[in-house]
């Protein structure tokens, strides 16, 4: 593809049922564009984990996805409480998820580490009281 394909989604923070819908749409778009299934799977899982995080922790946010033939860039921005200690949040097993999130099968403290595992680059910028931006790059 010659030009970058840009997709934007508003993630509703009060809707546990629709959480994941944006990731599903990205997965569908990447499939239609003919990307390698392994790449699609990595992008879909990483974005889904991020989307769930935004719903669980940050009352939603915005997801921007930039698709090029050689890489997929996903930027998740929220105006949530922010992460006080990003290094701690990146540790497997550390979680501050609510009981509601745990009842849905999340909150194992695997989200951020898993996002890092499935992507080639991940940057987390967060400020307490302001919000968090997570940028992920998946090389194709």
């Amino acid at each position: 593809m010659a030009e970058t394909i840009k997709l934007q989604f508003n993630i509703d923070g009060n809707n546990f049922v629709d959480a994941g819908a944006a990731s599903g749409k990205v997965k569908k778009t990447l499939t239609q564009l003919g990307f390698d299934p392994a790449v699609i799977r990595r992008a879909a899982i990483a974005m889904y984990e991020g989307e769930i995080n935004m719903v669980i922790h940050a009352d939603g946010g915005v997801a921007d996805v930039y698709i090029d033939s050689d890489k997929i860039r996903i930027v998740l921005s929220d105006k949530g409480p922010g992460i006080a200690d990003v290094e701690l949040a990146m540790k497997e097993g550390y979680s501050t998820a609510s009981q509601e999130a745990r009842d849905l099968g999340f909150g194992a403290g695997m989200g951020l580490p898993n996002m890092k595992n499935y992507t080639d680059e991940m940057t987390v910028n967060s400020k307490v009281g302001v919000g968090t931006t997570v940028e992920m790059i998946i090389n194709c």
């Binding site: 049922v17 994941g20 799977r41 889904y48 769930i52 849905l104």
Partner: peptide
């Protein structure tokens, strides 16, 4: 576990 996120998770994981 019974909630829509089970189906979403499966979708992402193929």
């Amino acid at each position: 576990l019974v909630n829509p996120q089970v189906v979403r998770t499966a979708e992402m994981m193929d």
